[in-house]
Structure formats: C-alpha cells, structure tokens
Amino acid sequence: MAQNTAEDTLSLLTRISQKPGVQSTLILSRDTGAIVRTSGLISNTTSANPNSTLPASLETAPDNYSNGRKEGGMQSAEDVASLVWSFLGAAGKLVDGLDKEDEVKLLRLRTKKNELVIMPDPRYIMIMIHEAPSA
C-alpha cells in the first residue's frame, strides 16, 4: 500500500542514493542492459535517458574527485554499466559451471577504495558503489 506508487519507489531509490558513503547507484534492465536509473554518474552518450538520473548524495559531490574517479569527477554510466554487465556475465558463467541449477543472487566486490554491491534480479540489476570503510 505505502510502497507501491512510483513516487514511493522513487523516493526509496533517492534515499539509498543519498545515504552517506554511497557514491553512485545504477539500475539496469536485465534483458537489454538499458539504463533505467542512475545517480552519481554522468552519461557521456545519449544512451541514458537524462530523466533517469537521481540526485546523488551531497557529500560525494565535488570534493571526492580523487576517489577512484576519472578526471571529470564522475564515471560515465555507460562505462560502469558495461563493465558491470560483463562482470556479472562472468560471475554467471562461474556459477553455471559449478552448478547448473544455481544462480547469482548478490555480488559484493571490495576494492581498495570502494565496494560494489550488485544485486541481479529476474528483470533488473541493481548496482551500488560506495566507499569502503577505511580498513
């Protein structure tokens, strides 16, 4: 009831994209790879619908340039999308190879700077990149 309107859905996404530490989020369609929503990323081509960009968290705005980003301060949504896409494909192959009936449910990838959380769903893929706690 409370969560079913598009507005509420959007506010949930905005919420997560504005949580402290979250640099960017991305939602892809599972079958076509089309970008449904992004935040904290710029799109350098026309591949992403400009309307699909959500407000990003404030603290990751200008002063975080050095943190794993390109010169422009932001990575392009397409780059991230295609990289994640192929990463997910590789992970899917791995799981398939181990057990045909298994499937990927969640990928957490820790890097020195960030953590990627990738959650594939039957129809969509949710990607979140956030700062890893300084370890």
Partner: peptide, 18 residues
Amino acid sequence: EEFAGFVERSTKVLERAL
C-alpha cells in the same frame, strides 16, 4: 508492479549491506 517490487527488495538488501 514488478519494478516496485524489485526496488523494494533490492534497496533493503543494499541498506542492510551498508
């Protein structure tokens, strides 16, 4: 509906992860 359900599920997972 599907997208709403997906967002509901996935954002919960993300928040838990955070």
